[in-house]
Design a protein around this nucleic acid. Structure first.
Lengths: 219, 219
DNA sequence: TAGATTGTTAATCGATTAACAATC
DNA sequence: TAGATTGTTAATCGATTAACAATC
């Protein structure tokens, strides 16, 4: 009933997508791996293999039980209660993230936002939150028991912030700053770098045009 | 001199990080795979193998030529000139992205931003840009020859926007909307979903605590 | 029962790591 | 030359795909 054996990294990375798609499937109570896979943008073989790590939530000849599978995914991901999240950086991006409405429905609650700039402190965010001075960071983390934090500072500030987060007990960091953070083993970091993403698209465009050229040259 | 053979997906995904780290290495003109790998958060074996796809920019016994390698990476990624980028969605996130200063230095130039909401049209962004009505999207793409676009709309709007982008000639999409886009083969989509990223961190926390529990039970 | 579809196994494919010969 | 470090090969590892027996 509570499988949670080792889940391969590559499988884990897809579970949130499955959960999202299933959550959008209001009213449907059964779906085949073929249909669900199409909606998730993966192959049905891969979907079935991935879902097998959750134990059996399908019925042969019929398909998967949508609400049951959704609940199992949420449980596997640890989303049975909300996680408090602290945001560091109150610039354009930090504010956009703090105001992101989807947060709550996906299992997270912003419990604090801080900024190094004194001028920003005091500014209001959603949910009755106010930007607080960086000096309060450790205190906020301890008070809210947040173990997940978002870094949305300029590159220079990111490593010291990460150090402080880790010292205060944070073990999961979503990093938007364009730097490689160094953190102790056991602390998870996920990097999101707009520039990197765009450069990968540029690479794709480049390949595309090279491909076209060599086809023109007729190989 | 111009290798550009097939580059494995997994290697391609790391090239922008190498480029970023090398760009931050002002003044250094030579570096060993060991040092550079550490700065990039990968193993030296992996770094050497990855860099080999660019041809030879290292000297045995010495290390890699930093400026040479940086230029080779930029060339491989197609960053020898700036790519025009159109942003769809002028909400919190779209605005934050449009105002992101790092854009230009990484090889991109925002040439247009549109929003479906009439009330937002006319609002000013950086670089003399102004939010334009959604109806102008195709025209903007054709005028600027943009082939890369960013979708920063709510989930509902994303698929119709993607369809319109593709129809207008866009072949690379950076998608921030929490939906699986369906696009024709040959169009590259990169998804960035804040919720997915956080859920993966939650999963990590969950695993962490399960690990702790079973250790307590003394296995 | 017949048809459909899961869960799982085996085969394939690709990516990472280790090791070292080539060479500065 | 001796020491260092790349470029590359071979070995390992993990992920994906294909296929099908189990079973509703």
């Amino acid at each position: 009933m509570q499988p949670s054996g080792r889940v391969p990294e590559s499988t884990a990375a897809r579970l949130p997508v499955y959960l999202r798609v299933l959550s959008d499937l209001a009213g449907v109570d059964s779906i085949s791996s073929e249909e669900l896979a199409a909606a998730c943008g993966v192959s049905s073989a891969q979907l079935r293999k991935d879902l097998a790590v959750l134990g059996s939530h399908g019925t042969r000849g019929v398909g998967y039980d949508v609400p049951g599978l959704r609940d199992a995914l949420a449980a596997e991901l640890g989303l049975e209660q909300d996680w408090p999240v602290v945001i560091v950086g109150g610039g354009n991006l930090g504010m956009a993230l703090a105001n992101y409405a989807g947060f709550l429905s996906r299992g997270f609650r912003v419990v604090g936002i801080v900024d190094a700039d004194q001028l920003r402190a005091g500014e209001a965010v959603v949910g009755g939150l106010v930007i607080q001075p960086m000096a309060d960071l450790a205190r906020i983390i301890r008070r809210t028991h947040a173990v997940i934090a978002v870094i949305a500072t300029p590159a220079e500030g990111a490593q010291p912030v990460a150090d402080e987060l880790v010292a205060a007990g944070v073990t999961g960091i979503l990093n938007f700053a364009p730097v490689v953070l160094s953190v102790p083993a056991g602390v998870a970091v996920r990097d999101v770098d707009l520039g990197v993403e765009l450069q990968l698209l540029a690479f794709h465009e480049q390949q595309r045009s090279l491909g076209r050229d060599s086809r023109r040259e007729g190989e």
